[in-house]
């Protein structure tokens, strides 16, 4: 079980391989990577994430512990970047390990749904029309509420 919050870039493939290598034949591993989105109708040139690291570590550690207990995960890791990123760069990666796929999938979804609303990161998008703070989405609260 691990939580990492950093301004440094991470390599999703290398992280996945290291996670699998430590899994020791567990049976099922799920990896989700969130990357900076830029759509043709709403292009962005940069995404800046602000973070409160002390709270982020506490919140992510609690979320990982909750997922581990609820789904009987053998391991779970969350890596989250902050600072200024470009389109296509990885922002977040969650990885779960369990004996069977159902718990691994559900655990990864649970981790993502909780960290979207409960981890102290704030996104600011920069595009052709300027810079603005991304607003919290009601659908993210709905996604989290389904686990309650």
């Amino acid at each position: 079980m691990g939580v990492r919050v950093s301004t440094g870039a991470f390599d999703p493939g290398a992280e996945t391989n290291a996670f699998l290598a430590a899994g020791n034949g567990a049976g099922a591993a799920v990896t989700f990577t969130g990357v900076v989105r830029s759509k043709p109708d709403a292009p962005i040139t940069a995404l800046t994430l602000e973070c409160y690291p002390d709270l982020a570590i506490n919140q992510l550690t609690a979320i990982v512990a909750a997922a581990t207990e609820r789904f009987g995960l053998l391991a779970a890791t969350v890596i989250h970047r902050y600072g200024t990123l470009g389109p296509g760069e990885p922002i977040v990666q969650v990885m779960t390990l369990s004996p069977h796929r159902d718990a691994a999938f559900k655990g990864a979804e649970f981790l993502m749904d909780y960290l979207k609303t409960d981890a102290p990161f704030w996104k600011q998008e920069t595009g052709p029309t300027g810079t603005h703070w991304v607003e919290a989405k009601a659908e993210d609260d709905v996604a989290k509420a389904r686990w309650e």
């Binding site: 409160y52 979207k116 409960d118 996104k123 919290a136």
Partner: peptide
């Protein structure tokens, strides 16, 4: 530690205030 508005602050060293979180 995340708290709501009714939480006491007596004895606290650091209080952080911020908008809704938009990570992930």
């Amino acid at each position: 530690k995340l708290v709501n508005h009714s939480a006491p602050i007596a004895g606290a060293s650091v209080v952080a205030l911020f908008p809704p979180m938009t990570g992930g």
